[in-house]
Amino acid sequence: MTDFLPSPVAAGWERIAPDAAGFDAARLAEATAFAEGAESPWPMSLYYPDGRYVGIVEWNEKGPWSDIVGPVMPRGKPAGVIVRGGRIVAGWGETERVDMTFSVAKSYLAVLAGLAFDDGLIALDDPVGRTVDDPHFSGPRNGRITWRHLLTQASEWQGELFGKSDQVDHNRQIGPGADNSRKGDARDLKEPGTFYEYNDVRVNVLSYALLRRFGRALPEVLKERIMDPIGASDTWRWNGYSTSWVDVDGRRIQSVPGGAHWGGGIVISALDHARLGLLIQRGGRWGDRQLLSRTYLDAMLAPSATNPDYGFLWWLNRGQKRFPHATGESVFALGAGSNLIWIAPELDLVAVTRWMDQTKFDAFFQKVTAALA
């Protein structure tokens, strides 16, 4: 079963009956019904009646850096798909609907960094400024920041990019029960590589640095090197900010963000997310093509020094501390709203959920794993 690959989206994915894929059909139906009913509390427009963007409310953001500078589109209803052995076992909602995906985009950035690594454009422990000649990567602090630091959110980069200061996400917490009462309050910075902080400005710095190394718009690279080879649709797009146009060798190129904190980001379908998840589950290989090296993937999915639950912009579950009912080898691309790609290599399983209440994720994992006969 593990060698099967889906046809390009135009031909449609092959489906398999739950019992043929090793599931109890009734229990799997219960799991998908749960997912469809566990809807996000976010407003459909992604704006509250008083006009505030939902992300700004979610993270208790205020002050001079909170302007929405990228496109925002209304969200859909809960949707998702479960894939086992490369075939669709179950789906719910509008799985072809293109939707915002928030910080799942960070995991796509990690894939692009893998392409740059495999091409010899970056070395993980080199200072970014060694190959990116730019004031953002110079000086006594930023000049010592490596690609690994940026990929693990431990860079402690300091500055302003596209009108957003790194301070906007100082003291930020994420996930259920997060306390963001001090978010945006300036704190003393630590040495690069010694302190983890979930900081969207610093992720956008990584995206900008990768743009400079490729010398091309990152969505073009992703489409050519990843999305087209895995048979994804042509409906996805990656929106930047009105403020994120840069000059690269005399060409005007838009740098793209690693989420939708201030609008923009990747808008994509559940089915296309599932293809990316399947590529990662298959060790970067798609058929007879190795699209990402195992060397890079092993580094990407290894616990980082400053957060053992985090690799290179992918969430981990070693010891099942984060999600007790997902497998220990599970990895996740997570985005607010909430959006999820769940990869369970031990189960040969990929699942995508859109617009699920984030407090219900572990219950969903429990129901899916319990459905395996």
Rank of each mutant, 00 (worst) to 15 (best):
A11E: 10
D119L: 15
Q173L: 07
Y310S: 03
Q290Y: 09
Q158P: 01
Y108C: 13
V128P: 14
A336V: 11
L372R: 02
G265L: 04
A10D: 14
T32C: 08
R202K: 01
W262R: 07
D24E: 14
V203N: 04
R75F: 12
W238G: 02
G139L: 12
R144I: 07
P192W: 00
F195R: 00
S7W: 13
E156D: 12
L297H: 00
F361A: 07
P71H: 12
D228S: 11
L347N: 08
P257T: 07
G263A: 03
V221C: 09
R27N: 14
R87V: 14
T2V: 12
A20K: 12
W245T: 09
K367R: 15
W59G: 05
P74G: 15
T369I: 09
V248Y: 07
K367Q: 06
I16A: 02
R318Y: 10
I82W: 04
R282A: 10
D126W: 15
N142S: 09
K77G: 13
A11N: 12
A299E: 12
L313S: 01
I82T: 06
G129A: 15
E197Q: 04
N199R: 00
F332Q: 05
V331L: 12
G22K: 08
S304Q: 05
A333T: 08
S40H: 02
G86E: 08
N239C: 14
L313R: 04
V57F: 12
W355Q: 11
S330L: 04
L189S: 00
Y310K: 06
I174H: 06
A17I: 02
H325I: 00
F365M: 08
Y208H: 06
A35G: 06
E58G: 05
P324Y: 04
V248Q: 11
G335I: 02
W236S: 10
G143E: 08
S330T: 00
I16P: 01
A274E: 08
D133A: 15
A25H: 10
V205Q: 00
S269F: 05
P176Y: 02
A351W: 03
G284W: 02
V205F: 03
G258S: 07
N307G: 01
D99M: 15
A31P: 03
L211T: 11
V246A: 01
F137L: 14
E156I: 10
D24F: 11
A154E: 10
V89R: 03
E191F: 07
A209W: 01
W13N: 01
V69N: 12
G80V: 05
K106E: 06
D119E: 15
A305F: 05
K190V: 00
